[in-house]
Design a protein around this nucleic acid. Structure first.
Length: 409
RNA sequence: CGGGGCGUGGCUCAGUCCGGCUAGAGCACUUGGUUCGGGACCAAGGAGUCGGUGGUUCAAAUCCACUCGCCCCGACCA
């Protein structure tokens, strides 16, 4: 992809409207466009990362037998009245009437809707268990949106729902999702911890949160530096009595055992093998996809910009050409690399070296490939690793092999 | 909702306290030229209802009132 043809317009100065790292860098690097407070558009760069994260999620969800669907964002209020959550969530719901005076909301979450779907189609224990998930936009009228896409009024969420005939089935699916989440966050390059959590407005018997330690975290956990364990309470460590240290955390995922709260209220019933009607046993499992993006930036950056993990980077390498004379060679090398399946941002702009280097750092590809005087004089292509700043010099063939190996292409 | 900060070309800001005549700078953009391995230089140029409304005044970016928006802290958070 040629830089000059890409919708990439980095800012030289820090945007004034942003305070936290991820917000600042994502705006500065033209990943995000701020529409209004708590409302963001994803520009092509940001969308690439979002797609990468989404595809990692899909891979691991599918491997656990979950099936993807896409539910409506518009929901009639009636389905919420069945569970009483039109009252519980009334302050966060965006509510309005359509031309027929029908009461609608923009879905803040989808337990009610998925339960309606399963109620309609599932009537026998033979049709269970099931796990369904979607990656979709959620709408919440936040009291105070902040930190860019960490807490916004419109955000992208992966929400999965499991339906079982008994507690054992629920536990099995819960564990499957728990383990998928660990794989997902690990693959996204996140250092995370898990902790038991309150079920809050979701209801249900058990729940765990996945947290990423970060300065702007809105949750506080107490860490035992000796055991490496985390607790909600501030008392001393129950295992070794060490004094606990408070750490700020960003919540990126949350899994719940819901039980029959929704299935009973909405009559999502099935017949068991003795012909008895029973509510399905549910679990729900959420990942804030757009928040994952922010969490990755919050924990992977330096003074020059973002440092993307290889798994989610919008480009595997930025190829900067520093000499007009070798522009066609640079483009042809970039295209060769792209043919191997690598995503290359070819910076063939007529800009000074400093501008190109700094844009490459800001955008944050794991590698920068440099074609300039070393190529003109010795046929050598330089490569700089974003994270370590380590530099290597290669022939064209060596460089192609190196990058192919780095990305298993 | 309470507390604090801010709003001036696309971006970052000066000017506001103490009103004054054609509203500035740097960056970005356009044209021409020189540069070119670390955010270049020269010349010319385009771009602004000073967030909005109302008021005070001979005169308002500047003072007053109201209002809208953004950021931060707090309450809240599936």
């Amino acid at each position: 992809m040629l830089y000059s043809k890409s919708f990439i317009f980095t800012l030289r100065e820090d945007p004034k409207t942003a305070e936290c790292i991820s917000h600042k860098l994502l705006l500065k690097g033209s990943y995000l466009f701020m529409v209004s407070s708590g409302i963001y558009s994803y520009l092509p760069l940001g969308f690439r990362v979002l797609e990468n994260v989404s595809n990692i999620i899909r891979k691991h969800m599918n491997s656990k037998g979950a099936e993807e669907l896409l539910m409506s964002a518009l929901q009639p209020i009636e389905i919420w009245q069945k569970t009483g959550r039109h009252e519980v969530l009334k302050d966060v719901m965006f509510k309005f009437k359509d031309r027929k005076n029908r009461n609608l909301c923009l879905g803040p979450t989808h337990e009610e809707e998925i339960t309606e779907i399963v109620r309609k189609y599932v009537s026998s224990y033979k049709q269970l268990p099931r796990i369904l998930y979607q990656i979709q936009t959620k709408f919440r009228d936040e009291i105070r949106p902040r930190f860019g896409v960490v807490r916004s009024c419109e955000f992208i969420m992966k929400d999965a729902y499991s339906f079982d005939i008994d507690e054992n089935g629920l536990n099995e699916n819960y564990n499957k999702m728990f383990s998928a989440y660990k794989d997902i966050f690990k693959e996204c390059g996140l250092e995370f911890i898990t902790t038991e959590a309150d079920s809050g407005a979701m209801g249900g018997s058990a729940s765990h949160e996945f947290m990423v330690p970060a300065e702007i975290g809105e949750d506080i956990l107490c860490e035992c530096e000796k055991c490496g364990k985390h607790f909600k309470e501030t008392e001393n460590c129950p295992h070794c009595a060490t004094k606990l240290k408070e750490k700020r955390m960003i919540e990126i995922g949350h899994v719940f055992k819901l039980g029959t709260k929704y299935s009973a209220a909405q009559e999502a019933l099935y017949l068991d093998n003795s012909g008895k009607r029973k509510p399905t046993i549910m679990g729900c499992y959420g990942i804030g996809v757009s928040r994952v993006l922010a969490a990755i930036v919050e924990t992977n950056y330096d003074e020059k910009g973002i440092i993307w993990p290889k798994s989610v980077t919008p480009f595997d390498a930025t190829l900067v050409c520093l000499d007009e004379k070798i522009k066609s060679e640079a483009i042809s090398l970039g295209e060769k690399l792209e043919k191997t399946g690598l995503k290359i941002l070819i910076d063939e702009r007529s800009e000074g070296a400093g501008v190109k280097f700094n844009d490459a750092y800001l955008i944050g590809s794991p590698y920068m490939v440099i074609m300039g005087k070393n190529y003109v004089s010795y046929g050598k292509i330089d490569l700089e690793e974003r994270k370590t700043k380590e530099k290597k010099s290669f022939s064209e063939q060596e460089l192609i092999s190196f990058l192919k190996e780095a990305y298993n292409k």
